[in-house]
Design a protein around this nucleic acid. Structure first.
Lengths: 335, 335
DNA sequence: CTGTTAGCGCCTTCAT
DNA sequence: ATGAAGGCGCTAACAG
């Protein structure tokens, strides 16, 4: 391993104390312009780089944050990650990326690792982690922003940002009803997901209040992927061929549903209509283009990181919850 | 800021030296089972977590690697990132994610930051960074894997992994020629991109050797995005309406081209045929499904990280260059 | 098997 | 404006 150039090396070469070099490097003002320039010349000559590790040990800050997502290959999360990274960069924070990969043990391992890395703050997009575990972790992090799930209790150093899934579900439901549908099915995503639970609750309430109790049986859980949507659709339609409309957990599931319908010879939107969720770039590119519940993904990422930065700066961001409202973007799959 | 529990705290409580606690925590074997258990009980009770920072300062290792990509929101790179993260996790490394965002200054800033963070190794996907800058950085990192670009000089601590773009271009070209095309255009991506340069070179060579010198004028550079493909197609087809086939820099550009053709009333594949590159999941979902040069994205990510891990382990991965060969996956846009 | 000593590279505090 | 002393939390190397 190459020997690092240290403050001491620069100090020796410059004939000053380490302290003076440190001041020059950090651009502090109680130092003469002349010495500063002389020192910086030597810094460049020697190729000195301050050790972030040593610095962090003493300052107890790492200028580092963690981002935990279920799957970075999912366009919804990669867009969010992009927003987070852009904002982190703008504020000189580095970003640890962790992928839960639908595996709770792995998720815990990743959070433990973030804790050991001593991130200054963390963003947790974790629809599955049991609430007690989540609370246990939140307690240990300095600051945290939790994305897309609500907590039963407000914690001072935490902020919440989520999409109002109940509202989204209602919007989609109302649209279907307005189009005259009576047999509306739901591909509800993973059972343990908070977001899924919200939607199911909202869907159930809508069924009952619309007097369409038959739809209560038309809820099918599935993986939040194209394959999951495909399988879910096949199960749903083979059990309930009477379905004429499907509300999907997200756009990937909706695309799977599109495929599933095609496989079963059901035309979209003539025989069956589909509404997706999140409005990822893909949605508008499909044939037929997908009607979807739009949320501004990248903005979501930016907002999440901005809130974390406020916390990091010792501010108390208000409100405690930032709630995004999905908008139904009409396209051909449910015009 | 909450007071950390330190080794000293645990040691005091357990009535042993810090060293013994350290051994227990790191699961070293020269310690009696009895003391280990007693200590671990106290560790749990006190909620002690080792400080990665302090540990790194003394070991000079951070168990951290950096990943630099142009744009994490681009499905090609998010798939790669997924492969990298999975593999990093499997080997207990944490991943810093950096986004160059098509901005060379930002890219340098990110690399500087990785250097200060003292990552053990770095993966650089940087098609644009000038070669001299790249070499300067490679010199400063302990280990590096460079993705999708070749270097004029072999460096001991570096490995190279790339897709053979010349071969890919040839495959696509040959397919077009076989289909009878004479006016083949190219949407070549960003001028500064190494990958773009490879393809242009290969395209040029193919033009000449096929006696289709007219095609030399049908090369249009563009941003590597859907919007870039759209604009590029409009420029290309308005200048050269005689074009009947387009080879796109990547699938996003190909999708833009698809759109552009539709806007201009040219049907794909009847009036004009299109071949994309990378075969991202989107490609097969388009209408018409896109013919594309397939590369195994996630495997690419896994391979890149595996090579880095070998370097990190002090091995000398052989061969120096791992080259992936794209395969032409035929779909409807150029059957 | 356990403890002691000596830093890792830097910043904070206090002197000068 | 500059320097000296002390310590951040941990581990490597050596004793015992």
């Amino acid at each position: 391993m190459i020997k690092r150039v240290t403050l001491a090396d620069v100090a020796r070469q410059a004939g000053v104390s380490m302290q003076t070099v440190s001041r020059a490097v950090r651009d502090k003002d109680d130092i003469s312009t002349e010495t500063r320039e002389r020192i910086m010349a030597i810094v460049n000559e020697l190729g000195y780089r301050p050790s972030g590790i040593a610095r962090s040990l003493v300052t107890q800050r790492t200028t580092t944050v963690g981002l935990m997502v279920p799957d970075i290959a999912n366009p919804f999360f990669s867009e969010i990650a992009r927003g987070v990274e852009d904002t982190a960069y703008a504020h000189a924070y580095s970003l640890f990326l962790c992928n839960a990969a639908e595996d709770i043990e792995r998720e815990k391992a990743a959070l433990n690792s973030l804790l050991e890395k001593q991130v200054d703050g963390v963003i947790i997009c974790s629809p599955r982690l049991p609430m007690t575990d989540l609370f246990a972790y939140l307690e240990q992090f300095y600051y945290a922003v939790v994305f897309n799930r609500d907590l039963s209790e407000d914690i001072d150093k935490v902020r919440l940002i989520y999409v109002d899934d109940q509202e989204g579900t209602r919007l989609a439901w109302d649209h279907f009803v307005q189009l005259g549908h009576q047999k509306i099915g739901m591909l509800a995503g993973p059972v343990q997901s908070w977001s899924s639970q919200q939607r199911v609750a909202s869907f159930r309430a809508a069924c009952t209040s619309a007097g369409l109790d038959g739809c209560l049986e038309l809820i099918e859980h599935c993986m939040p992927t194209i394959a999951g949507g495909l399988e879910g659709t096949e199960r749903l339609l083979s059990d309930h061929p009477e379905i004429t409309a499907i509300l999907a957990f997200n756009d990937l599931v909706a695309i799977g549903a599109l495929r599933g319908c095609q496989n079963l010879g059901r035309r979209v939107p003539q025989d069956i209509e589909i509404i997706g969720s999140d409005d990822i770039p893909l949605a508008s590119l499909m044939t037929p283009p997908l009607t979807s519940l739009h949320v501004p993904h990248r903005t979501l990422g930016v907002t999440v990181m901005q809130s974390l930065i406020q916390l990091l700066n010792g501010e108390k961001p208000d409100p405690y919850r930032i709630i995004f409202h999905p908008e139904l973007t009409l396209r051909c799959s449910a015009p």
